[in-house]
Design a protein around this nucleic acid. Structure first.
Lengths: 143, 143
DNA sequence: ATGGCTGCAAATAGTTTGCAATGAG
DNA sequence: CTCATTGCAAACTATTTGCAGCCAT
């Protein structure tokens, strides 16, 4: 679901349909991860997802969360972000956008396309095609 | 030094001066790392540095390589790049530039400033100032 | 002599993997 | 019943840390 209206949280059925549309079996655990992640645009770590789901009463293992996240990423349902070298984030906003990263707090904020745009792209190496552009604007506490 | 460029590889003395200018004690190991890293613009992982130095006959431990790289990074002598979530690269090109990352091969190529430029920057969060901008152009095998 | 560095090895943390058990259709 | 999926625990990998010994000053 590339553009979910930000106000509408997807129902269980919508998540199931989304997974099936990608050929992903809609198991209980995958649907739980989807419901959480696709509720709104957000960046979550694997640990945050596990904790959040368990607090919510879900029965899911660490391995399954990782398997699910990788599966989702392969199918373009989430985008993996490596801004902190010690942990990965999974971004449920798959529209074109970039990030502001506060290096002091670790906070990560989305920036929409109209606000940042590349003036030009370089020539790509022979035999390659564009897969995407990641832009991270690093900020620090002023002072 | 594994790859001695024919042109302007910094001499041992130049590296020592550089380190001292940053208040970094020019120990044997740090100078070796500097000679390797500052020989030309390049991205190296910690393992590549250890291996290269040891092949070259240096006596240096993994811990010292990491300590040294972090020290260099703190003083702006290298830039840490987290493009691959499993390992960090250290870029000895500290001038303003961005990267093309081949996700199939892992290859990382520098792109100079004139070729890529941001049209605009977003408003930064209250109380923060710009620390830097990272741009990674991801490419894949065409087809 | 002394204080900063270094090397070693153990610790840490995120992620992946092997495999038996489970469960949905 | 059957096959995909899960959970657990162990494995793995990159990086950090604790600490005793070493080295240059």
């Amino acid at each position: 679901m590339s553009a979910v209206p930000t106000t509408v949280s997807p129902s269980r059925e919508q998540v199931i349909q989304l997974l099936e549309s990608k050929g992903i079996g809609p198991t209980q655990q995958r649907v739980r991860v989807g419901e959480l992640l696709f509720a709104c645009d957000q960046h979550l770590t694997a640990d945050q997802i596990i904790e959040s789901l368990r607090v919510d009463g879900a029965r899911i293992s660490k391995a399954t969360v990782y398997n699910t996240l990788n599966l989702f990423a392969e199918h373009g349902l989430v985008r993996q972000i490596n801004v902190d070298s010690t942990r990965a984030c999974f971004d449920s906003n798959t529209r074109d956008h970039y990030h502001i990263h506060n290096v002091d707090t670790g906070e990560l904020v989305d920036v929409g396309l109209p606000q940042v745009r590349l003036e030009s792209l370089p020539n790509l190496p022979e035999g390659t095609e564009l897969a995407g552009v990641d832009i991270v604007i690093r900020v620090r506490r002023k002072g």
